[in-house]
Amino acid sequence: MILQSLIAEFDQEANSTRKLLQAIPGKDIAYKPSPISWTMGELAQHIATIYYWYVGVLNQNVYDLAADRLERGEPGDINATLDLFEKNVEKARTALHATTEESLQDLWTMKVGDRTVLGPLPRKVVVRSFLFNHVYHHRGEMIVYLRATDNKVPGLYGPTYEESTVR
């Protein structure tokens, strides 16, 4: 059963994402590694926003990002981003639990206005790639941001290098 596996992974990984976002210090929220990079706050806000997209992926066959509006708050306010994350995780969890195995086979498309930017693809592929793997990619970036600013990185899959007793 694909759906039950996705739900279990979602719950485990949302907890890891929460730990990572909670590790972001306000003092470094404006840090960015290059002129074209997001700030740490913008990256955190993007990670929190991905959880909002579960609703559009799981409840619509064609999701138009241009037609959807999400109030995100100020990216320089990590507490606002943490609140956004928690609200979006609950929306995502509700959407996942309302999904059926059959609907995971349906074709799904993302548009920005008239332009198709993703799909059509089976919804289960979109959940895995656009939602799950997208978060994992940006969490990896956030770990680099935290290390570059001499901040502690929480262990997501066991102890981090800094926490390890075996080096």
Rank of each mutant, 00 (worst) to 15 (best):
M1L: 12
L3H: 02
L6F: 15
Q12H: 12
Q12V: 14
E13C: 01
E13A: 11
A14H: 00
A14R: 02
T17S: 10
K19P: 08
K19T: 07
P25K: 00
G26C: 03
Y31K: 00
K32Y: 01
K32D: 02
P35R: 00
W38C: 04
M40T: 14
G41I: 02
E42K: 08
A44D: 04
H46D: 08
V55Y: 05
V55S: 03
V55M: 00
G56Y: 06
G56A: 04
V57A: 10
V57I: 11
L58W: 08
N59K: 15
N61T: 14
V62M: 11
D64C: 01
E71M: 09
E74D: 15
E74N: 15
G76F: 00
I78L: 09
A80G: 06
T81M: 07
L82W: 12
D83W: 08
F85W: 10
V89M: 01
R93P: 07
T94R: 13
L96K: 08
H97T: 14
T100F: 11
T100W: 10
S103F: 06
S103Y: 04
Q105L: 11
Q105S: 11
D106H: 15
T109R: 13
K111Y: 12
L121M: 13
R123C: 08
V126A: 10
L131V: 01
V135I: 14
V135P: 02
R139M: 05
R139T: 02
M142S: 03
I143F: 10
R147L: 11
K152P: 08
V153A: 07
V153L: 06
G155D: 03
L156Y: 02
L156T: 08
E163D: 14
E163V: 09
T165L: 15
T165H: 14
V166N: 15
